[in-house]
């Protein structure tokens, strides 16, 4: 059984009459990537701020890397890194100076700082910009530098609070690659996101948070199953969409299409659709998230691995 590196029980936080967290329970196993998915104001950032010792909970307990966040904040801080919604880097320093400063503050041995900083600049594709003042960086470069700064001391637990919010699709894809690398390196990652696609792409486990409570938890596939099976979607000539349930297998789809043809229905386009996290969200919260839906995001993203005109869409690419 994997050991839980992040454990939260009944976290509560309120600002006056406004309840932000209403009893959040979370477990993140070692090496796991958990996405905390929810709309704006659901309590994602508050949860992360409590877990990273920046905020005291009103009630409940939480421990990170075996240390209580309220009573042993120093030990927690030595084991974590936090990348927030706003790139927490120094605008007036160069990229390299930023990393050297953070390396010193993270108490890396002085002899290893130079090598580690150079290593991260390379890995995050910031070598060319290393001697430029951060003020001149693009949004994507800032986030990469921010993330690199957090990883200098190889933290056990990496908190990423909406790591790609506000980035253009290309920068976002680049950052996703970097985050996958962090995971491959063995860190435990807790990321918050309002992008369903992001949770789907990066996380092994998704916890859906709404109104300060975790309302569902599971793998992306498990969550999608809760809203039913795949179906064949037909855009009927002259308007209208028909959905026919399928198990997604080749014989079953062939049978459905043959049936459609035999009945003489003219079809403009058709596709096999599997439930998206969007559907899950709708099912669980009773309302669509007020963020770009998966379909829209994908249309605008120049993803190499997405066929622009899908005839057959099954599950996402294997990870």
């Amino acid at each position: 059984m994997t050991e839980n590196v992040v454990v939260a029980r009944g976290l509560r936080k309120a600002y006056g009459d406004l309840t932000v967290l209403d009893g959040v329970d979370l477990d993140v196993g070692r090496g796991e990537v958990l996405a905390l998915l929810g709309p704006n104001g659901a309590g994602k950032t508050t949860t992360v701020r409590i877990l990273s010792t920046l905020l005291r909970p009103d009630g409940g307990t939480a421990s990170v890397a075996g240390h209580d966040v309220v009573h042993e904040p120093g030990a927690v801080r030595a084991a974590i890194s936090l990348t927030g919604q706003y790139a927490a880097v120094d605008e007036l320093l160069t990229g390299e100076e930023n990393l050297r400063l953070m390396a010193r503050l993270a108490h890396l041995p002085r002899t290893s700082i130079r090598a580690r900083v150079a290593e991260l600049l390379t890995l995050f594709d910031l070598e060319d910009a290393a001697r430029r003042v951060v003020k001149t960086y693009s949004g994507g470069m800032r986030r990469r530098l921010d993330l690199a700064a957090g990883l200098l001391a190889r933290p056990q637990v990496v908190f990423l609070d909406e790591p790609t919010t506000g980035l253009d699709p290309r920068s976002r894809n680049g950052l996703w690659d970097v985050i996958r690398g962090v995971v491959a390196d063995g860190a435990t990652v807790l990321l918050t996101t309002q992008y369903l696609e992001e949770a789907d792409r990066l996380a092994g486990t998704v916890a859906v948070i709404d109104h300060g409570r975790v309302i569902a938890r599971g793998t992306p596939a498990e969550l999608k199953q809760t809203v039913g099976s795949a179906h064949v979607e037909l855009a009927v000539a002259g308007g209208g969409v028909e959905r026919i349930a399928t198990d997604g297998s080749v014989p079953d789809v062939r049978r459905i299409l043959a049936d459609v043809e035999r009945r003489g229905i003219a079809v403009d386009r058709w596709a096999v659709r599997t439930p998206t996290l969007d559907d899950v969200f709708l099912e669980l919260t009773g309302s669509a998230p007020d963020t770009p839906a998966v379909g829209q995001t994908r249309d605008s993203a120049p993803d190499a691995d997405v066929d622009p005109s899908p005839v057959l869409v099954t599950t996402r690419e294997p990870r």
Binding site: A75, A78, R116, L123, V182, D185, G186
Partner: peptide
């Protein structure tokens, strides 16, 4: 894909913070 190149060897070789204090 940078994901593979990011794996920088076993974590045991990572520099250990000299002091948490």
């Amino acid at each position: 894909m940078t994901a593979t190149t990011l794996t920088t060897g076993p974590r045991a070789t990572a520099p250990v913070p000299a002091a948490a204090r």
